[in-house]
C-alpha cells in the first residue's frame, strides 16, 4: 500500500496520517453519470476505505462522450451504470469496499444508506434529489459537496452542517427547468473541472483539514475563460427550514416530491411535480424540436417521441411516460428535461 499511494502521502497536507484517514472513511456517491463516475474513480484511486454508489440508469451510447468508467461493451450489454461502475472500480483498486446499488435515490433510500457515511458527493442530475441530499445532510450532520455542469459551465460548493449555508438557503425552492446536459449539451472538460473541485474538497474533508475547505461558491465557464468565487458569508438564512433554528427538512417529506404512479393496466407511468406549474407548452415543444425529437402538440399537451417511449406533457407540469412500467426509469426520463 505504501508504494501505491506514495505520491499522495508525499503531499504534505495528506501525508501518511491523512492516508490512514482516507482509508478509514466511507463516501456515499449519489449518481454514476459523468460526475459520479469521475468522482468515484478519483476516490477509489486515492484509496478511500468504502464507497457506496447509487444510480437508477443504464449505460447508453450518448454517455460515452463524458462518463469515464464506461466502454462500448457496457453499452452493448445495456449494463446498469452502478454495475458497470463497480466492475471497473474493482479492477482499478481491489482494496476498496465498493457497494453498487441500482436504485432511485429517494429520501427513503438516502435515509437507509446514510448510516456510517462520512461524506456525500452530489453527482445527480436534478434539484429534487439534491434538495433531499441537502436535508439528509443537515438531519444527520454529514457534509456534502454540490457539483453541477452544463455546456462549458459548471459550479461547486461544499456544504458543512453547522458551518456553511445550505443549498436551501441559496435556492429557497426547487428551480423547475434548471438547465441539464440533455437540454444544453455538455463537454468533457467542464465535467472534469467540477470533479477537480469536488475531489479536492472531498480529500480535505476526508483528511479532516477543515481550515482548507473552500468556503466560497465556485463557478466557471471553460469556453469563455471565466472563473468566479462567490463569498458566502451573508448567505446563511437563520430561518431556513433545512439548516435554520427550527429545521423541518421539507424535502424529506413525500408531499414535496415528484409523484410517480403506474397507470392501471397500461404500460405507462404518470408523473406529477410537487407544485403546480404553469408551463409554456409552445416553448416546451420548440425546445424539444431543437433537441432533435419528433414533437406533436395541441393547446393542451405536447407529445414527444423517443426511442422506446413517448412522453406527453401537460400545462401543469404533469407528464405521462408511455412504454414503461418502471417508476425510476420514468422519473429519469422526466428529469432529463425538467431537472
Amino acid at each position: 500500500m505504501s508504494e501505491r499511494y506514495s505520491r499522495q502521502t508525499l503531499f504534505p497536507p495528506i501525508g501518511k496520517g491523512g492516508q490512514e484517514k482516507i482509508r478509514s472513511k466511507h463516501v456515499l456517491m449519489i449518481g454514476a453519470g459523468a460526475l459520479g463516475s469521475g468522482n468515484a474513480e478519483l476516490l477509489v484511486r486515492a484509496g478511500i476505505g468504502r464507497l457506496t454508489i447509487v444510480d437508477r440508469d443504464y449505460v447508453e451510447a450518448s454517455n460515452l462522450q463524458r462518463q469515464q468508467l464506461y466502454t462500448e461493451e457496457d453499452v452493448a450489454e445495456k449494463l446498469p451504470k452502478a454495475a458497470a461502475a463497480e466492475k471497473r472500480l474493482k479492477a482499478i483498486n481491489s482494496e476498496v469496499a465498493i457497494t453498487a446499488m441500482i436504485a432511485d435515490a429517494t429520501p427513503e433510500k438516502l435515509a437507509e444508506l446514510i448510516d456510517g457515511v462520512d461524506l456525500i458527493i452530489d453527482a445527480t442530475d436534478n434539484f429534487e434529489t439534491r434538495m433531499a441530499i441537502n436535508d439528509i445532510s443537515q438531519k444527520f450532520r454529514i457534509p456534502w459537496i454540490y457539483g453541477a455542469c452544463v455546456g462549458s459551465f459548471g459550479m461547486s460548493f461544499s456544504i458543512i452542517p453547522g458551518k456553511t449555508p445550505c443549498l436551501n438557503c441559496l435556492l429557497k425552492t426547487v428551480p423547475l427547468q434548471g438547465m441539464t446536459c440533455d437540454t444544453g449539451g455538455i463537454i468533457g472538460p467542464a465535467v472534469q473541472m467540477v470533479i477537480a473541485h469536488q475531489g479536492a474538497e472531498a480529500l480535505k474533508i476526508l483528511v479532516e483539514d477543515w481550515d482548507a475547505v473552500r468556503t466560497s461558491f465556485v463557478s466557471f465557464d471553460l469556453w469563455r475563460n471565466q472563473y468566479t468565487s462567490m463569498k458566502m458569508s451573508k448567505a446563511k438564512d437563520p430561518g431556513c427550514l433545512s439548516c435554520g433554528e427550527h429545521p423541518e427538512y421539507p424535502y424529506l417529506d413525500v408531499e414535496n416530491m415528484t409523484k410517480t404512479t403506474v397507470l392501471c393496466g397500461r404500460d405507462t407511468v404518470q408523473i406529477r411535480p410537487p407544485k403546480q406549474q404553469q408551463l409554456n407548452l409552445q416553448d416546451t415543444a420548440e425546445k424539444m424540436k431543437d433537441l432533435g425529437y419528433q414533437v406533436k402538440g395541441n393547446p393542451y399537451l405536447v407529445s414527444v417521441e423517443m426511442d422506446d417511449n413517448r412522453m406527453v406533457i401537460f400545462e401543469d407540469g404533469r407528464a405521462l411516460i408511455h412504454g414503461t412500467k418502471d417508476l425510476a426509469q420514468a422519473r429519469s426520463i422526466y428529469q432529463r428535461f425538467f431537472g
Partner: peptide
C-alpha cells in the same frame, strides 16, 4: 452584480 443560475446537469 453577477447573476449565476444554478444548473442541474451532472
Amino acid at each position: 452584480i453577477a447573476f449565476i443560475p444554478p444548473v442541474s446537469g451532472g
